[in-house]
């Protein structure tokens, strides 16, 4: 049964990605990105990664969409004073001939597909990724963590705790950088639109 539900999810994922590439209205593109994130979260759930699925649904579909919408509201094509905004203001211009990018993408894709022929098959229990870090840590994690059943949490918060600390440092740095970039220059009378996004990032 699980195998059957994968097919529509993958088809929808591919269709959503193509729609994002083709659609010109940026609001719609942002919304389709949210849909794409939710669909990929569903697939992750089927692939036995519920933790990643939750995070992808919350962060990828939620926070990213909010940040993108906030940015869109700050970057209409016309200046705000010239009346109400319409959907026209969030359309990108028609792009030039897509032939060269399509060619590049096709060649890269073919090279990557050629690369997959050496990959271990999907679900193969003897693939290097399953064998190499000695899997016995899965058994040991529960006594190590005083009965915590979720191995992902155990690895994330304890075995790779320094990595998670570094990740927090990355978030902190990004937050500071966003604040610095969007800070209003007092000497230079810029537009007053910049402040609202900073709150979202905190």
């Amino acid at each position: 049964m699980m195998d059957l539900i994968v097919i529509p999810i993958l088809a929808l994922l591919a269709a959503t990605a193509v729609t994002v590439a083709r659609i010109r209205n940026l609001w719609a593109a942002v919304m389709f990105t949210g849909i794409y994130s939710f669909l990929s979260a569903s697939w992750m759930l089927i692939l036995d990664a519920p933790d990643v699925a939750f995070t992808e649904a919350a962060v990828g579909a939620g926070i990213t969409t909010i940040l993108m919408l906030a940015t869109l509201s700050l970057t209409p094509r016309r200046h705000r004073k010239s009346g109400r905004l319409s959907s026209e203001d969030f359309e990108e211009r028609p792009s030039k001939s897509p032939l060269v990018p399509l060619l590049i993408v096709t060649i890269t894709g073919c090279a990557l597909v050629y690369g997959t022929f050496d990959m271990p098959h999907f679900g193969d229990p003897n693939a290097p990724i399953q064998v190499y870090p000695q899997p016995s840590f899965v058994e040991k994690s529960q006594p190590d963590m005083h009965g915590l059943p979720n191995v992902v949490t155990a690895v994330l918060a304890s075995y790779r705790g320094y990595d998670t600390l570094g990740e927090t440092a990355v978030i902190f740095t990004a937050g500071i950088a966003v604040l610095l970039i969007l800070r209003k220059n007092t000497d230079d009378q810029g537009t007053s639109e910049s402040q609202s996004v900073t709150g979202e990032n905190a």
């Binding site: 994330l156 990740e167 990004a174 966003v178």
Partner: peptide, 24 residues
């Protein structure tokens, strides 16, 4: 395997940081 999940959890969070920076 739990290890790809752990790595990708980290990557998702770092990804939102870079996205926020790019949007700023």
């Amino acid at each position: 395997n739990p290890i790809p999940s752990v790595l990708m959890l980290t990557a998702i969070v770092v990804g939102i940081a870079t996205t926020a920076l790019a949007l700023a």
